[in-house]
Amino acid sequence: MKSLKKKRRIQVVGVAVVALVLSTGLIGYAMRDGINFFRSPSQVMEEPPAPNETFRIGGLVEEGSLERGVGEQIRFRVTDGGATVPVVFGGVLPDLFAENQGMVGTGRYVNGVFEASEILAKHDETYMPKEVMDALKEQGVYQAPDS
């Protein structure tokens, strides 16, 4: 009788381990497209990502680079002080989007141009995304806002 209980316990533990491994694998597989890593313009220029990789880029919109094209096509350059990456966006920009302001974009780097699918701009005069602030500090161009 003890032998049967021991076998049953081992079977239950084995099934539980297999179920846990399988569910962890399925969760990881489902989240693979939902995870977007942040890169600064310097990191993008040093190691260009694959054209099919979706990631986030952030920095300051370079002054004088904002070009509104025909229709909704918008071009500008984003910089962290160390490197500059051209950006193309085919949508409506946030109201607070402007030159010399912080931004974060989600998209892909194709043929030397970041093709943004989403653009986020700062939401008030003192806010800057942490990733953008860290990238600017790393390049030595971050200036703290006046309080």
Score class of each variant (00 low, 15 high):
3 S>T: 14
3 S>H: 11
5 K>C: 09
6 K>A: 15
8 R>G: 02
10 I>L: 11
10 I>G: 02
10 I>M: 08
14 G>V: 09
14 G>P: 04
15 V>A: 14
16 A>T: 10
16 A>K: 05
16 A>C: 07
18 V>I: 15
19 A>Y: 04
20 L>Y: 00
20 L>Q: 01
21 V>H: 03
21 V>Q: 03
23 S>M: 11
25 G>W: 06
25 G>N: 01
25 G>Y: 09
26 L>M: 15
27 I>K: 13
27 I>Q: 08
28 G>Y: 10
28 G>I: 15
28 G>C: 09
29 Y>N: 05
31 M>F: 15
31 M>K: 14
31 M>A: 15
33 D>P: 02
34 G>A: 12
35 I>R: 08
35 I>T: 13
37 F>S: 05
38 F>N: 11
38 F>A: 07
39 R>I: 05
40 S>F: 02
42 S>Q: 14
43 Q>R: 05
44 V>N: 07
44 V>Q: 08
46 E>Y: 00
47 E>T: 09
49 P>D: 13
49 P>L: 14
51 P>S: 15
53 E>F: 10
53 E>R: 10
54 T>E: 10
55 F>P: 03
55 F>Q: 02
59 G>R: 01
59 G>A: 00
59 G>M: 07
60 L>I: 13
62 E>G: 09
64 G>S: 11
64 G>A: 08
65 S>Y: 08
66 L>N: 06
68 R>P: 05
70 V>I: 14
71 G>W: 05
74 I>G: 03
76 F>N: 06
76 F>P: 03
79 T>V: 00
79 T>S: 13
83 A>V: 04
83 A>I: 11
83 A>K: 06
85 V>Y: 09
86 P>E: 10
86 P>D: 02
89 F>N: 12
89 F>W: 03
90 G>A: 14
91 G>D: 04
91 G>L: 03
92 V>E: 14
93 L>N: 00
94 P>Y: 06
95 D>Y: 02
96 L>W: 04
97 F>T: 12
99 E>C: 04
99 E>D: 06
99 E>G: 13
100 N>W: 00
100 N>H: 08
101 Q>Y: 01
101 Q>A: 15
103 M>A: 05
106 T>D: 02
107 G>A: 04
110 V>L: 11
111 N>M: 09
111 N>V: 10
112 G>M: 13
113 V>Y: 04
114 F>C: 02
114 F>M: 09
114 F>S: 09
116 A>K: 11
118 E>Y: 15
120 L>C: 08
121 A>S: 13
121 A>N: 07
125 E>Y: 01
125 E>C: 00
126 T>C: 06
127 Y>V: 04
128 M>G: 01
130 K>G: 08
132 V>N: 03
134 D>S: 08
135 A>N: 09
135 A>T: 01
139 Q>V: 03
139 Q>W: 12
140 G>Y: 12
140 G>K: 02
141 V>Q: 06
142 Y>I: 06
142 Y>A: 00
144 A>T: 12
145 P>H: 06
146 D>Y: 10
146 D>A: 12
146 D>M: 07
146 D>Q: 11
147 S>P: 12
147 S>T: 10
